[in-house]
């Protein structure tokens, strides 16, 4: 049930995208997201679509696996689309009782849906092809310049990697406690909203207790191995840019140029 959420998961495969430096992928994803907000016409979206399809193909992650991750966000998307559809002023296309759908509304709802879908697909492509550890290494490295402003970059990265590492552990723990309480007759599936929320107490209290216990153990284990923060700390596997990363950056620049050009040209 809970395990079926694939958003943000890593998918093991041997592909060019998997081999890229995490920094390249982070910058790439950011570029893609920015390009989505630059794109405002059909041509630009077509360019983005081609790019995304190519990247998904390159990643060798099965489409079904990527689509499964989308299911978690369908609700949010529906709400956004509905708001856009009904609340955009303009020329009326359809009128149902007091609500009206405008041509502008249809247009902006469609664009919003595509934009959100691509946004999620693009960023989940990054997490699918990058291990959480690599991802935080990449972030730490990219944020290094911020240290000048006294931002605790290493600490932030460490917290992130611990948080990511704990997601599967806590999911498993949730599953276990849920079953243990169900064995005692607890019911998590029926009743009204308030009753359901109340029924969660026997799940949440043990979960928090266990999270604190684990955090305590982890802190102890880190101290036992002389962890003292980022100062003077080196990496066993430092990130190194390779030729393929250079090529990837080149592709990114070309892609961004194409998007801007497509935007200037307007619909063909």
């Amino acid at each position: 049930m809970i395990r079926e959420i694939t958003l943000g998961q890593y998918y093991q495969a041997d592909s060019l995208l998997h081999k890229l430096d995490p920094r390249t992928k982070l910058v790439g994803t950011l570029t893609f997201i920015i390009s989505l907000f630059l794109a405002k016409n059909v041509t630009a979206y077509a360019v983005a679509t081609v790019f995304l399809v190519l990247m998904i193909g390159l990643s060798r992650v099965p489409i079904s696996f990527i689509v499964k991750g989308m299911r978690a966000v369908v609700m949010i998307m529906m709400i956004t689309v509905l708001f856009n559809l009904f609340l955009t002023p303009g020329i009326t296309a359809v009128k149902i009782w007091r609500f009206q759908i405008t041509y502008e509304g249809i247009r902006s709802a469609a664009y919003m849906a595509i934009r959100l879908t691509y946004l999620i697909l693009g960023s989940s492509l990054m997490t699918l092809t990058t291990t959480p550890n690599n991802l935080t290494d990449g972030m730490e490295s990219l944020m290094k310049p911020l240290r000048v402003f006294k931002v605790p970059v290493h600490e932030i990265a460490m917290m992130m990697s611990i948080a990511l590492r704990f997601i599967p552990i806590l999911l498993e723990e949730t599953d276990k406690i849920m079953k243990a309480q169900q064995a005692r007759g607890a019911d998590f599936e029926s009743g009204g909203l308030i009753k359901r929320a109340k029924n969660l107490v026997p799940l949440l209290v043990p979960l928090f207790v266990s999270a604190f216990r684990r955090a305590n153990d982890l802190a102890m284990a880190m101290e036992a191995r002389c962890y003292h923060g980022g100062e003077g700390r080196t990496k066993m596997k430092p990130l190194i840019y390779r030729k393929r990363d250079g090529a990837a950056y080149a592709v990114l620049v070309i892609y961004l140029a194409l998007i801007v050009t497509a935007q200037k040209l307007g619909p063909l």
């Binding site: 276990k176 064995a183 005692r184 026997p202 209290v205």
Partner: peptide
């Protein structure tokens, strides 16, 4: 199913983690 849960009691590994 609810009756069954009462009839067949299951004590999990480390059951103390379910106290709340």
């Amino acid at each position: 199913m609810k009756d069954l849960r009462g009839k067949v009691g299951l004590v999990f590994q480390y059951p103390e983690h379910q106290l709340f």
